[in-house]
């Protein structure tokens, strides 16, 4: 027996099954982690309960849900017959988000493929840092760009009376969502093991064939998740949209129409309403609606990223 051998506590045969300090620490940490997870869930439920409490009574007692979803008139300040229809607001949010995705998807996926598959060394590292920096620009700054740069530009280029419209907000929102989408899409590409690329390249496939036939299909779930998170961002974004859409209740017929978004309506009006009034409750109802939509989108994104598909 070498001197190197550490002195071992004499072990009785079969007497190893004892709980020691490590075991108790393990249990303690497991308990703490469990508490952390549970409290996150409790917070979410708490937020939902708060929003529901403020809006739900109104939904049940006063609000005509059919009118709420199908009327295009949002006239809460009408003294005689205030009307709470959010169809135009939904159309506003949807049109801006839709255009934003048209802008953001090609930009972000293209950037992700370039950073992940083509760029090397310093180019790659600096691009990644730049993308992260872009993602950190506050939304009010984007709104400012929409107001002061995009607005006159659109008026001049397209010869329209107002530059604050679907086009303006869509582009701003698209540029805003693109960095975070790029970042997530690039993570998805990076998660594809190199041996897949090597195996494909060994068959004589070109760079593009490898990406198109092997890498993108393998990263499909992550890429779809990135897109869905972008959509969620679009639905939830408030400040930039408030500043760039023109904020007028309107179902758009062209991209040069001004619109108003669900989120922006809450932000602009909540401060001026009396707590507990119908208008106040109607805004909370919009909040519930937004909450459900973003919840569904995030859930979808989550399921897609995990690759869970039905059927």
């Amino acid at each position: 027996m070498s001197a190197a051998k550490r002195p071992m506590v004499a072990r009785e045969r079969g007497d190893f099954d004892r709980r020691n300090a490590d075991w108790y620490i393990d249990r303690l940490v497991q308990g703490l982690v469990f508490l952390g997870g549970i409290s996150a869930i409790l917070f979410i439920i708490g937020i939902f309960v708060f929003i529901a409490k403020e809006g739900l009574g109104f939904v049940i007692d006063t609000l005509d849900l059919t009118e709420f979803f199908t009327s295009k008139y949002w006239e809460p300040s009408d003294e005689e017959a205030p009307e709470y229809g959010i169809l135009a607001l939904i159309a506003g949010t949807a049109s801006v988000t839709g255009l934003a995705m048209v802008v953001a998807i090609p930009f972000s996926l293209g950037a992700a493929v370039y950073i992940g598959e083509f760029a090397t060394g310093k180019t790659r590292e600096s691009l990644k840092v730049l993308v992260e920096l872009l993602a950190a620009i506050p939304s009010v700054v984007w709104g400012f760009i929409g107001l002061s740069i995009m607005n006159p530009l659109i008026i001049e280029l397209f010869d329209v009376p107002v530059g604050l419209n679907v086009l303006n907000a869509g582009i701003i929102l698209g540029l805003m969502a693109a960095p975070i989408m790029t970042s997530i899409a690039e993570d998805a590409l990076k998660a594809v093991p190199d041996r897949y690329r090597e195996a494909a390249e060994a068959m004589g496939a070109t760079r593009w064939q490898v990406i198109y036939k092997v890498v993108l299909p393998a990263a499909k779930n992550g890429l779809l998740g990135a897109v869905l998170l972008g959509v969620g961002r679009g639905f939830g974004e408030t400040m930039a949209v408030l500043m760039a859409t023109g904020h007028s209740v309107n179902i758009p017929t062209s991209i040069f129409d001004s619109v108003r978004a669900l989120t922006a309506t809450i932000a602009a009006e909540l401060g001026e309403t009396a707590v507990g009034s119908d208008h106040y409750s109607a805004l909370f109802t919009i909040g519930i609606f937004l909450f459900i939509i973003t919840f569904v989108i995030n859930l979808l994104a989550d399921l897609v990223v995990r690759g869970v598909r039905k059927g």
């Binding site: 045969r13 079969g14 075991w23």
Partner: peptide, 18 residues
């Protein structure tokens, strides 16, 4: 394992250490 049923261990880590 050494006469101890592994399905009813109090401390499974102690088994894995061995």
């Amino acid at each position: 394992f050494d006469g101890v049923p592994v399905s009813r261990l109090r401390n499974v880590y102690a088994l894995r250490k061995r």
